[in-house]
Design a protein around this nucleic acid. Structure first.
Lengths: 214, 214
DNA sequence: GGCCTTGCTAAGCGCTCGCTCACCTTCGGC
DNA sequence: GCCGAAGGTGAGCGAGCGCTTAGCAAGGCC
């Protein structure tokens, strides 16, 4: 299984780039708390407590509570874009690349559900400047997926009525995995990824099956 | 266009069942505020202000802020179930009924985006008892859609790998409309409903087109 | 050994939150 | 014209919020 996320230069430890260690502990604690209760319902005391520190320690490493959300959101979106971009630009037919993109993206949303929830659903809690930066990253995600679909249409592999709408629906389907996964059913991230890749290929009217990719 | 929502006994004024009028005004104000900022970021002063009343007036009609969310969520879910049930139990082939269910359900999420956002995304802000009641309604929504898909398979109209997973994906796709609609693109609720009905029929491998339904 | 710098804590500031309470209208019944 | 109920208000309570500040322990440098 040589799929997008292993070859994207991504770390296995998703927050390894955050230093020093105390700042990373606080950030991981914030991800968990935000995913569980939501940004506004999470207190700085809760975050510091989960990291085993006093409330004041948070403000040595971060200027505000919102900066924590901003850094989480930016790193998460960069990772998401990385996954999609790697799948979009690998070799192979549009069918294979779309299946890879969807299964990788879904696996990320299912496996890292805590992170993905924060990344995908707490966007409105950011201030205008931070939100604008993140929205730009999201548009790039959209462009990568739309690119694959347009390639598939040009190559005669896909049959799509509305490229823009179908792109949005494909991304929407993947993103919403972060909301329901692990609440509803007994699937592994791999299983959901495979199922969703099949569903998406049907949505774009792909003519031939992907190359046995999981 | 004789589709689910017109024949479901639903009101055109969605909150008509809430009386007296002051209680309804407060509830409508709460829906708007919750949809804009989220439950936890909304203050009781904000809700009362939007309704043109003093903060204390809220507590004449509702015991707590959470009771407001609970009532909104229950009425909204009952409406959603109503839409799906009407489409599921009308006459017609499984293909026609599924297309009707999806397009009606999507139109409701797109058109009443403020309400749908609260209903679909603020579930975790409810306490355990209220949440359990709402989750039961959601399971009934799931059962209605699964029923149509199983009918379609039995009738040889659909080809589906995983009934439970596909059902979940169909509902997920529709629900997520409440998150992105009116942010991303220039579609009307009708257009999104029609596009999504087509996409979902592809997902279930429907063999013949639906009967010209919008 | 004296002395900064770094990373942290205990205490608490100012503020706003959900919610309450004492009181004030308005109005139908008689 | 008086009365009680229903529906409203202004002021404010206790609690908890995001964030700040004064001070402390530890380690490298001279």
């Amino acid at each position: 299984m040589s799929t997008a996320e292993e070859t994207a230069g991504g770390e296995m430890q998703p927050w390894a780039e955050v230093t020093p260690e105390a700042a990373r502990r606080l950030l991981v604690a914030a991800v968990e708390a935000f995913a569980e209760r939501g940004y506004h319902a999470t207190t700085t005391r809760d975050i510091a407590g989960r990291a085993g520190m006093s409330p004041a320690a948070l403000y040595i490493h971060y200027k505000t509570k919102e900066e924590l959300l901003h850094r989480i959101s930016r790193i998460g979106h960069e990772r998401a874009l990385d996954i999609l971009r790697t799948a979009a630009r690998r070799e192979g037919t549009a069918t294979e690349r779309l299946a890879d993109a969807v299964s990788s993206f879904v696996r990320w949303h299912a496996g890292g559900r805590t992170t993905a929830r924060v990344v995908q659903y707490e966007l409105d809690s950011l201030g205008p400047d931070a939100r604008a930066e993140i929205v730009a990253l999201r548009r790039q995600c959209d462009a990568e997926v739309r690119g694959i679909i347009e390639d598939g249409i040009a190559a005669g592999e896909f049959e799509v009525l509305d490229v823009r709408g179908t792109t949005l629906a494909v991304l929407s389907l993947c993103i919403d995995v972060a909301r329901w996964f692990n609440i509803a059913g007994p699937w592994t991230p791999d299983e959901v990824g495979a199922l969703y890749a099949d569903l998406v290929l049907r949505m774009v009217g792909a003519h031939k099956a992907p190359a046995a990719g999981k």
